[in-house]
Structures are given as structure tokens and as C-alpha cells.
């Protein structure tokens, strides 16, 4: 690498300095998850694609990666769905609209939507895996003419933990969406499916040659979802998955998110399954 070919360092951007964005709206999604709508200075678009993430920080508290939940078709602000899982999210939970937080990004590759265009789109989302998948779902809904059928499989621990319930109700009603939901353990009032998310897959009506799938969920889910898809006859090259790791810097430097040779913050978080099949640390 010849350093002299680079821009002089003074011209390089500071990779680690966040812009200050404003929390515009806060809503409780469930006992553990909270929704935030965030606006960049001047209402500038984040310019992301479904599946990408941002690094969110609060000075004096810390910085961590969060999936972007809104579709790029939402203009003027973007949305996050945050699970309470530590110090930063604890403090975030106390923030009210009007508070400014640090944002860097968007980072990661996101979903290559071109690969889904003209095809039926199958989304398999477990737990907070729905947060990034919601970005893709709404992207498809807002660009209906570019995609085939939209099939959603969503699994959650219990019906109390279901996220974005208003939107779930709309998807259920929408004749253009084949929507399925299941919970591991339902409360007394739950009348829907009970069981892990993979129990939804055998019953799906799929045009195998023309369907592309994207999976996102807790680490244990991937292997079982893959098994179900394969026994259904789903081809590897039609499967994409979004993986979670510790993306600390977001710019391919700090090393924390590495899966074998791959930096999740650069090559992921959305991977084409054939590319990670041989990566032993991936699934």
C-alpha cells in the first residue's frame, strides 16, 4: 500500500465522530423493546438500505450498533427498535423526545434488494430479528410493483413480546401479504399458532423457483430455519441471512465483529448463504 496515493490525512473524515441527531418519538413496543424515531440535523435522510445499522452513542455512557428498522422509503427521519440489554440501552430508555444522541453510519452492506426484485420475498424473523426485517418488509410494501408476493414468518417468545403490533395487524389484513405468526408460549388470550418459528415453514405455499428468503433472529434460530427451508426444497442461493456480532467501530477496524475472515460490519450483516456455508464460525 502506497501511502502517498492517499488523500492527505487532514482531508480524511473523522470516522469516529458522531453527528448529533434528535430523538423525535419514543414508544414502548414491549416489556423489553422500545421504538425510537430519530432525525438527523436538518431532517437529512440517513441514506440507508434495509439491513444496515447505525452506531448510536450517548456521551459518557457508550456506543453500540443498532439495526435500522425503518424502510428507506420513510423520509426525514429513521426508526430504531431497541432491546434493553445493558448500560447504554438502560440509559437510552430514560431519554425523551428532544434529546440529542450521537449517530454514525449507516454501516454494513444491507440487503441487496436487486436480488429480490421480481421475486417472491420470504422474510423469516425471530424475536428482535423483526426490527431490521421490518425495514425490508416496508420497503417491499412501498415498492409493491417491483416485487412478487410478500411472505412473512414471525416468531416470538410470547404474544406479550410481539413487536410493532399495529403493523402486524395491518400485514395480517393485507391480502397481498401472506403473514404467519407463532409464539413459543402464548398467554390465555392468545389464539394464534404456538411453537417455534420453524413450525411455520412446512405449511408455506412457496413458488420455490421464484422465491428469495431473508432470515434474521437469535443465534440458535438459523440452523433450524435452514433445515426447514431445505427440507421444503429451498435452494441455498435463494437464502440470505442477517447476522449479529459485536460491531464496535462499524468501519472494519476494531476486529470485534469478525466471523472467520469476514468483518460483519463490512461484508455483512446480511450474508448470501452460499458465501457463509463454509465459514465455521458463522452459524
Amino acid at each position: 500500500m502506497n501511502l502517498s496515493e492517499l488523500k492527505t490525512p487532514a482531508e480524511l473524515e473523522d470516522l469516529y465522530h458522531p453527528v448529533m441527531a434528535e430523538i423525535k418519538e419514543v414508544k414502548r413496543l414491549s416489556a423489553m423493546e422500545t421504538y425510537y424515531r430519530v432525525e438527523l440535523p436538518g431532517g437529512e435522510d440517513l441514506g440507508h438500505m434495509p439491513g444496515q445499522f447505525v452506531e448510536l452513542s450517548i456521551f459518557g455512557v457508550g456506543e453500540a450498533p443498532f439495526s435500522i428498522s425503518s424502510s428507506p422509503t420513510l423520509k426525514g427521519s429513521f426508526e430504531l427498535g431497541v432491546r434493553r440489554a445493558g448500560m447504554l440501552t438502560d440509559v437510552l430508555l430514560r431519554q425523551q423526545p428532544g434529546t440529542k444522541i450521537g449517530i454514525r453510519g449507516p454501516f454494513g452492506n444491507g440487503i441487496d434488494v436487486e436480488k429480490f426484485k421480481g421475486k417472491d420475498v420470504l422474510i423469516i424473523a425471530g424475536g428482535i430479528g423483526l426490527v431490521p426485517m421490518r425495514s425490508m418488509i416496508n420497503y417491499v410494501i412501498d415498492n409493491r410493483d417491483q416485487f412478487g408476493k410478500l411472505i412473512i414468518c414471525y416468531g416470538s417468545k410470547s404474544d406479550q413480546d410481539l413487536l410493532f403490533t399495529d403493523e402486524l395487524a395491518q400485514w395480517e389484513k393485507d391480502p397481498a401479504i401472506d403473514y404467519h405468526v407463532t409464539v413459543d408460549q402464548g398467554s390465555d388470550s392468545w389464539q394464534g399458532n404456538t411453537g417455534v418459528i420453524t413450525t411455520l415453514i412446512p405449511g408455506l405455499d412457496l413458488d420455490l423457483a421464484n422465491t428469495v428468503c431473508c432470515i434474521c433472529g437469535p443465534p440458535v434460530m438459523y440452523r433450524f430455519a435452514l433445515l426447514s427451508l431445505k427440507s421444503k426444497g429451498f435452494a441455498d442461493e435463494n437464502i440470505y441471512m442477517s447476522l449479529e456480532r459485536r460491531m464496535k467501530c462499524g468501519v472494519g477496524k476494531c476486529g470485534h465483529c469478525q466471523i472467520n475472515h469476514s468483518y460483519v460490519c463490512q461484508d455483512g450483516p446480511v450474508y448470501h448463504y452460499p458465501d457463509i456455508k463454509s465459514m465455521q464460525e458463522a452459524l
Partner: peptide, 22 residues
């Protein structure tokens, strides 16, 4: 140092490293 030059220039070149290194 040559190896690090690669790591800090590939993808997003890092100002912090390169300023010190230049």
C-alpha cells in the same frame, strides 16, 4: 508497519492512524 498501513487504509482510511503515520 506495512501490514498496519494496509489495515488502516483498506475500506475506510483512518485519519487517526494515517495522521500519525504520514
Amino acid at each position: 508497519v506495512g501490514r498496519l498501513d494496509y489495515n488502516f487504509t483498506v475500506g475506510s482510511p483512518e485519519k487517526n492512524y494515517l495522521t500519525r503515520r504520514q
